[in-house]
Amino acid sequence: MVDIPILMIGKNVVVPIQTELNDIGAKKMQEDVLYKIEKTTASGLVIDVSAVSIIDSFLGRILVDTSKMAKLMGTESVIVGMKKEVVLTLIQLGLRMENLNTALNLEDGLNLLRKLQETLHGKISG
């Protein structure tokens, strides 16, 4: 099984998923990502799924859950680069994935994270 690369850009964890993930792989990815956040105390998480052409209900839930878990650890997360076919399948499966931050591409995702973190800071300092 291929390990999913987990990178750091500034204070953000970036996870570019480059292969199709099966259930076990998805679980492992979730674990690895959360450990990485714990170790680095990253302030943001970007999961790039632009190379994934199949997201089933399991992987969909993993993504939503990971984002919730990261949030509990104080890390905002964004899923970026969802493909058109993936979106159509998810919609047909009835998975709306509300409360999930999404962006078109990595760059937008990082921008969105910055904005989210700014508003968070604003709340704390204001």
């Binding site: 899923i79 970026v80 680069g81 969802m82 058109k84 979106v87 159509l88 998810l90 919609i91 709306r96 994935m97 509300e98 999930l100 999404t102 962006a103 078109l104 591409n105 937008d108 995702g109």
Partner: peptide, 12 residues
């Protein structure tokens, strides 16, 4: 609503 959530999922 479906169309809107689809766009949202893509990040738009």
């Amino acid at each position: 609503i479906t169309a809107a959530s689809a766009a949202k999922l893509m990040g738009a």
